[in-house]
Design a protein around this nucleic acid. Structure first.
Length: 104
DNA sequence: CCACTGACGCGTA
DNA sequence: ATACGCGCCAGTG
């Protein structure tokens, strides 16, 4: 669970209007991407953890189906000024936030 | 205790 | 460029 807590910390640090990827966070924490996804799944009631700002390396909302409702993820991202088409974030690289690079 | 699964990522064919 | 397979760590059955 310590891993999960670290994941939460990083996710919380994601600036509004920016997004990150499982791989980037995992690499920053020195863990595997799967753990990051599992951590998000374990978030459930954890507050202050913008899981909707975490997507896969392709900028696709792979985990949107785990939200309630599933479209909540896209709505929140759009509310933050992000453009999404077919579960895909437009200009993903421009909105991408890498903890290893930005948060060094 | 062993086996299967999962919000992913990368290498190889 | 697309498709298939393996690795990774933790949790649950």
């Amino acid at each position: 669970m310590e891993r999960f807590d670290e994941v939460y910390e990083v996710v919380k640090l994601i600036p509004r209007g920016k997004v990150s990827s499982y791989g980037a966070i995992a690499r920053y924490l020195g863990t595997s991407p799967r753990i990051v996804g599992w951590a998000m799944n374990s978030v459930k009631g954890e507050d202050g953890v913008p899981a909707h700002r975490v997507v896969n390396r392709n900028g696709v909302l792979t985990g949107k189906m785990h939200f309630t409702p599933p479209q909540k993820m896209q709505e929140d991202l759009e509310k933050e000024g992000l453009q999404i088409t077919d579960d895909q974030i437009l200009n993903f690289t421009e909105h991408f936030w890498d903890p290893s690079a930005e948060l060094l």
